[in-house]
Simulated assay, not measured.
Amino acid sequence: MEPATTPVTPRCVLGCAALAGLYRPVAEEEAQAALEAAWELGVRRFDTAPHYGVGLSEERLGRFLRTKPRDSFTISTKVGRLLVDDPAAVDGTDEFYGTPRRSRRRDYTADGVLRSLEESLERLGLDRVDLALVHDPEDFMDQALDEAAPALSRLRAEGVLNGYGVGTNVTGTARRFVSETDVDTVMIAGRYSLLDRRAEEGLLDLCHDRDIRVLAAAVLNSGILVDPAPGARFNYAPAPDWLLAAARHMDGACAAHDLPLRAAALQFPVRHPAVDAVVLGAGSEATVRDSVAWLRAPVPDELWAELDALLPEQDRLP
């Protein structure tokens, strides 16, 4: 099945975790080929973090972007984890493989934020990033709200950053940042998808009311919305049978319209007015091309209505 595409650049950000050995080692050449494909297809927004491959993602992305005019793209990175050289670091820590010998140290202080951004710029080889996100602050909320957020707010006021926000898969964390700080961006992972709408009323609607843009990440819910076969995962864990059944019903509805499930899954989040873009987790040239093609494929309105009718009970989601 081949997508019927249009030349319009999709509303997407290329997330660069998978380019840094997430779940499997990724060669430099493979990572650069994926970035080249994204650029060829019109992608100009990129997201990375020190956490991804303990700096490998930033290094690889920087090597690519340094060949492009700086004003032709935007880039976001994250704060909250500082990296230290560590000869004893174990390959595969946090599911990243083939990475440098470094360890992560959590730090959400104001000084830690400034140091994190300085070190990110060194790895990227760039003079600035456009957006900084406080990364996974759940266990450090007081420090993140009292120190990290004000530090980033000051950098935005000084023109060092164009924007700042929070990146998390916990809707309660995102709501606190929206309510207690002056963030302009929220990246929410895995909580606004065809199967999981838990971010909608409590977070997305609030962001829309406050003119805070949302970036929807992990929209395939760990692969169940690519292939809901037995053994498929939902949010990093084996999916229960009832959820697999719901995903298979959605898959069948898409097939009746001659579309794969992932086409609807990739496009679904931007239907909400608060969602600015989908963050793609593609880690190879093939997956980049596939994702962008299906983002451009027409999806009939009647299919959206059918998929909404197949939504599983949200209070049962793991």
Rank of each mutant, 00 (worst) to 15 (best):
P3T: 02
P10A: 10
R11V: 09
L14T: 01
A17M: 09
A17N: 01
L19F: 02
A20P: 01
P25I: 00
A34C: 10
E36D: 12
E40A: 12
Y52C: 14
L56S: 01
E59V: 12
E59A: 13
R60S: 09
L65Q: 04
D71V: 06
I75Y: 10
I75P: 00
G80N: 10
G80Y: 06
P87S: 08
P87A: 05
E95I: 05
F96R: 00
P100V: 14
S103R: 12
R104N: 03
Y108M: 12
S116V: 12
S116D: 11
L117I: 13
L117A: 08
D127L: 09
V129C: 10
L131E: 09
L133A: 03
L133R: 03
V134D: 08
M141G: 04
Q143P: 04
D146W: 01
D146M: 07
E147Q: 15
E147D: 05
A149K: 01
L155C: 14
L161F: 12
G163C: 12
V170G: 04
T173R: 10
T173K: 02
F177P: 00
V183S: 01
T185M: 09
M187P: 08
G190P: 06
R191Q: 15
R191F: 13
L194T: 01
R197F: 07
R198I: 08
G202P: 03
L206N: 03
D209S: 14
R210T: 07
R210H: 12
I212T: 02
L215D: 06
N221Y: 08
G223M: 10
I224V: 13
D227R: 02
A229M: 14
A229D: 12
G231F: 13
A232T: 07
N235H: 08
A239C: 07
D241A: 14
M250C: 09
L261E: 06
A264W: 02
A265L: 07
F268C: 00
F268Y: 13
A277T: 02
V278Q: 05
L280S: 14
L280C: 11
E285Q: 09
R289Y: 11
A293F: 08
W294Q: 10
L295C: 11
P298R: 01
V299D: 01
V299I: 14
A309K: 00
L310I: 02
L311G: 07
R316M: 15
P318K: 06
